[in-house]
């Protein structure tokens, strides 16, 4: 399972970011969202960017303590407690879809919300969708 995004459908509203942060942080907090809308200008085009849940993820390979492991049930790669905050995964990810929480000193990324990703559930245009 992974999330697919469609730039043509994205209006740049950030609803996905907001529901993502609310799910994971209990707050609306774009800088803690696991999904981010990328754009060159306020006028778009807008590209939702989120972890592809790669078959052979560069982030996991780069992790010196093997903290990035599969959550089989959700079908997602998740960052475990072992993370030491070295940020090697951030450098390794070709999609820039893993982030660093300076307060906790840990990496964070999309975990597909235990199989019910809130970004896909909340996107009003279908620009973010969960595919098997």
């Amino acid at each position: 399972m992974h999330l697919e995004t469609d730039t043509d459908k994205c209006t740049g509203c950030r609803i996905c970011e907001n529901f993502c942060a609310l799910q994971h942080e209990g707050a609306i907090w774009p800088t803690r969202a696991r999904i981010r809308i990328l754009s060159q200008s306020d006028d778009g085009p807008f590209a939702p960017n989120v972890c592809r849940q790669c078959d052979d993820p560069a982030c996991a390979a780069a992790c010196p303590v093997d903290a990035i492991k599969p959550d089989v049930e959700a079908g997602a790669w998740v960052v475990g407690e072992e993370c030491i905050g070295c940020q090697a995964c951030l450098d390794a990810c070709p999609h820039h879809a893993i982030f660093f929480d300076a307060q906790l000193g840990r990496a964070f990324k999309c975990d597909l919300c235990q199989g019910e990703p809130q970004c896909a559930a909340s996107c009003p245009t279908g620009a973010v969708a969960l595919v098997p």
Binding site: G12, D42, G44
Partner: peptide, 17 residues
């Protein structure tokens, strides 16, 4: 018309470029 653009958190996206 170029594209739809939304304000923060808006599903309507009544604005357009």
């Amino acid at each position: 018309f170029v594209r739809n653009v939304a304000c923060f958190g808006c599903p309507v996206a009544c604005d357009k470029v």
